[in-house]
Each structure stands twice: as C-alpha cells, then as structure tokens.
Design a protein around this nucleic acid. Sequence first.
DNA 1: AAGCCGGGGTG
DNA 2: CACCCAGGCTT
Length: 362
Amino acid sequence: MLDNAKLFYQPVLDWHRKHGRSGLPWQQEISPYRVWVSEIMLQQTRVDTAIPYFLNFLQHFPTLATLAAATEDQVLHHWTGLGYYNRARNMRRAAQQVVEQHGGELPESFDDLIELPGIGRSTAGAILSISMAQRAVILDGNVKRVLARVHRLAGWPGSGEPLKQLWKLAEHYTPPDPPEHGALQTAGEYSQAMMDLGATLCTRHNPQCQLCPVSDNCQALQMNEVTLYPQPKPRKVLPVKEIQFLLLSNSDDEVLLDKRPPVGIWPGLWSLPELPLNNSVEDYCLERLGKSPLTVKAEKPFSHTFSHFKLMIHPVWVDVAESTKDIMEPNRSFWYNPTHSEKPAGLPAPVKKLLQKNFGKE
DNA sequence: AAGCCGGGGTG
DNA sequence: CACCCAGGCTT
C-alpha cells in the first residue's frame, strides 16, 4: 500500500477533473435525497439501466416527504422492471423513518444512516461524501476492482479477508474533507472519481491501462495480470450424475415414454426410460419387453444443468422392432409417436430436445 | 459465511 | 450459457 495516501488520490482526482463523467442525472442538483435514490437504484444495477428509472422516480417522488407519503404500491409501480424490489420497499420505509425520527432530512451521521433499511456501509459512505461534504468511504464494485488490481489482491472480494483488506485500503486512500489548504477536491469527488475510473477505464474486460492515472502504481499491470483481478467468486463444482436415456423405438416409429414419479426431478413429466450408465441395454429390454433389441446405437452424450447437480445424458437409440403394447400400463408409460401423436403436456427440456433432434418436429 | 434478490448486458 | 452489475439483508 502507498504509505502516503496523497500519492494515490491526487492523480485520481486530477484525472477525474479532466476526464470524469459529469452528465449523469444524479450529478446535477446534487442533494442527499437525489444521491440516496441513485445509490439505491445503482445497487447491482448498471448506470444505463438506472438512468430512466431515476428520472421517472424523481418525477413522481420529487422529495423525501413525497416518497414517505406514497403507498408501497405506488413506489413499486415506478420500480417495476428494475428488480430487487426490496430496495423500493426499504426506501419507502426508510423515508418514513426519516420523517418520524429525523425531521424529514436524511441524518448526517454514519451511524444514523446505516440504521435506515437499505443503506449499508458503502451507500452511507456515498451519501455522506458526495452530498454532505464529509470524509466518508465507499467500496462498491468499481472501487473493489480498482483497488484489487492496484494491489493485486488475492481472493474473491465479496466477503472475508479480501473484503476486509479492501475496506482498509479504501479508508486509507480517501482524502481529507474539508480538503487540505490550497486543494480544491473533496472526498465526495474522490468517491465519484473512483467509480468513474472503475466504470470507464478500469473495466472488467479490456481495461484502458494506458490512460489510467494510477497505472504506475498498479501491481496487477506490472505483472501483466490486470484482468485476473478481482478474482471471481469460487463456484461450487456441481456433482455430475450420468445416466442413459433410452430411445426405444418400434416399427411404428414410436418411442416409449415413462411418467416420472411425483417427487425428484421432473415430477410427473413424461420422460424417456432411464438407465444407470453401466447397465446393459440388452438386459433392460429383455426384462421390460421380453426380448432383445435389434440394434443398439449410442448417441453423443450431452449435459443438462440443474441448480444442484449436472446431469450427463447418454442417449441410446434402441430398435425394438415390434412393440409389445399390451404390457404397458396406461398411466405410467405409453408409446409416443413424435411426428403424429398429440404432444404430452409435460416434456423435460432435454427430452424435448432429443425428440426434436431425432424426429425433427417443431 | 452463504443464499437470496432480478432484469439485462456481455464475452 | 456463465458471469457480473454504483450491495444489503437474512439465516
């Protein structure tokens, strides 16, 4: 870490004065309320997405008091499409809380701000620094990315030790407010500057390091590893289950479908007969149809991902010549003609895909 | 610490 | 399709 914080924040501030964004709606007529609304809308939401919602929202709820007085339905109506709807509910509740407890003005202390629903550590820092001229610290996705690269910080910055380190760095590099004698910029400008830097130069893909004001101090750049930081969230490797899907086809161009049990995957849907990977198809046919198949042809396996495991499906094309329809139970299984029969209501996606591929219907 | 919320952009 | 976005709340 750069011991003298100024060596970091001064180039960032200077860059921002020349090249930062200044036309965003919430950067005009800056007020605590407007900054608050923008910060909430921008949580896990891109700037371009948020802009029209911000303009519309302020049209209908121009002040904190109007927001506090609105019904939840009204607020949600103007949030529709933005997602994360608890943000809107929390904001209305917070507005009411501000009216009741703080005389209708957003409180000017960190401790009071984070008591409000929807305002966490970073959002409080943004409101305090940008709209209240206080030295307060933000750590959003942009700042995380910049700092993780500059310091080549290992690990996923979402939680744990990496997150602690980032907060420490963010605290360290935030300039004083009011600024030192002779300086013009404030902590609020630094907050804006870091977000602009992350959003316009220090982007996740194709960062513009040659234009970056802190490239000389960027450890990731020195190692030519910029895009390796911040490191991605470790994904759990899904367990893989392998099965065979049998396309038992008879001389009438029908395939056998089974109704799946009411519990487990695809409950109640019509699926292909399935068999553990190493079980013999021949034995299965003998057991179930009372005879051996004419031909057995393995198709190319493909995968289908569920939330909790990955299913590797090995399709097997099986010609059983004449069908033995008499032994079938009507509500458990039936011979289905993909080109002529009426399509069963529920077919799992992979089954549908297989049938389409092999019979070319729809 | 991990899961959840969500629509949309992007490689 | 996987991953991520101006995060915060709940369990």
